[in-house]
Design a protein around this nucleic acid. Sequence first.
RNA 1: CGGGGCGUAGCGCAGCCCGGUAGCGCACCUGCCUUGGGCGCAGGGGGUCGCUGGUUCAAAUCCAGUCGCCCCGACCA
Length: 486
Amino acid sequence: MAEQDGRKEPLITEITPKSEDFSRWYTDLVRRAELADYSPVKGCMVIRPYGYAIWEFIQRGLDSRIKATGHVNAYFPLFIPKSLLVKEAEHVEGFAPQVAWVTRGGTEELEEPLVVRPTSEAIIGTMYAKWIQSWRDLPVLINQWANIVRWEKVTRLFLRTTEFLWQEGHTAHETAEEAEAETLMILRLYKEFVETELAVPVIAGRKSASEQFAGAERTYSIEALMGDGRALQAGTSHNLGQNFAKAFDIQFQARDKSLQYIWGTSWGMTTRLVGAVIMVHGDESGLVLPPRIAPYQVVIVPIPRGNWRETVLPHAQQIRDTLTAAGVRVMLDDRDAYTPGWKFSEWELRGVPLRLEVGPKDIERQQAVLARRDTREKIPTPVSGLAGRVQELLDAIQRNLFERALAFQREHTTRTSSWDEFTRTLEGRPGFVVSPWCGSEACEAEIKGLTQATIRTLPMDAEPSGAPCVKCGQPSVADAWFAKAY
RNA sequence: CGGGGCGUAGCGCAGCCCGGUAGCGCACCUGCCUUGGGCGCAGGGGGUCGCUGGUUCAAAUCCAGUCGCCCCGACCA
């Protein structure tokens, strides 16, 4: 690897190189950067402060958007009585293999077992039935931030854990059109959020029937491409039709005096997004965090010389105060125990977007040296006007990360109507393959069996090519985005 | 749930074949020296060798069982 082309070895030796084993690189990085750690409970992880801070910025950005579109937050219970979960037939069937049961309380056997929520349609639907009487009560637009338990067989830090954190919106509407409009509005909101805040480009579209949410009428999702060429579902928005309304008896009296079932939606995004950020932007040296969700946007590393605490440190502190006052999240790393070189590597590994070095030479020249995490460029910058320059650079980094990820996604998207090229492209982990599909579930399953690739999404806005199905040659209904998925 | 591998210090490993005082690197602690890309030197702390049983004068090492974890395939946000 590195020594062969004469360059020095990577500085970070504790982390498996990304090029060598992506999956190990990911796990090493999550643990070494102190985002999360395995817990004594099988399949569950501990989100450590640095990782949780990222989640908090994700929450903040998403929560404000959800509220800006007229939704309000509430909280529903963790436990759901068995009898409620089984009311919607497809829903139970979909979740039954994945739920955790509570059968005892203290020393007593429970009359009715409880499930720990795998999602909250059942409990929320039950409450909506009580709260909704009239068309005047609609729409109901509620979101909750909560934890969820799904008994997965195989788990991975952030991507799939037994317990995870998420946001779940549940809405009730007067008409089918309104519910569909809500579902699509949230899908657009998710796309805008992920692309703006996380700098992760996504494909928005509809799920095929086989990938649909248990109990939904129509499921939409946003799909992102990870650095190893596998796709990750980053958010889902479901149009529930009247399925849950009928199962939970959520009825209202309409304007024409008739009794009607409400039209429902539900939608969610999870802590998995943290995993997406790591896998989309990370590099051989570690994390690369988009400035908008970085716990620290700038880390100041003072260069110690002689009695640096008297000479250098005051300058560093003043720069910190200036940047903080300008609204920048700053960390001044004034620890004595580590050398500057060590700190450089450490904060790169943790993905801090900008590093600011101040040493005796800089003080003489009334400057500081800025170093970009994304391009590794070193930029000597005058102390006057520093805050403005830092803001500009943070914006530039945010944009560059998105552009870079978008270019990667495009380079790893193949369009073909040839089965031969389809299978050839899908050997290895090449990204998306966009191909005409006949709409048959059997055909989809056959493709999955032969290539491991599944239909990630059926984009709504794209014009179908009209070519025959890549597998069976029947007339196609859409150009489907295939990929191997997480 | 099927196939393969591994459990020895906080982490990564050696020792096991051939039984005889438990070791290395990193991390950690103390002191000095350094500090513009993971400094150096000296000293130090830490392990019932996954668990249970057996063989033996003696077990990390041999035997049997058991538990746990990881990787590859089927299920999943």
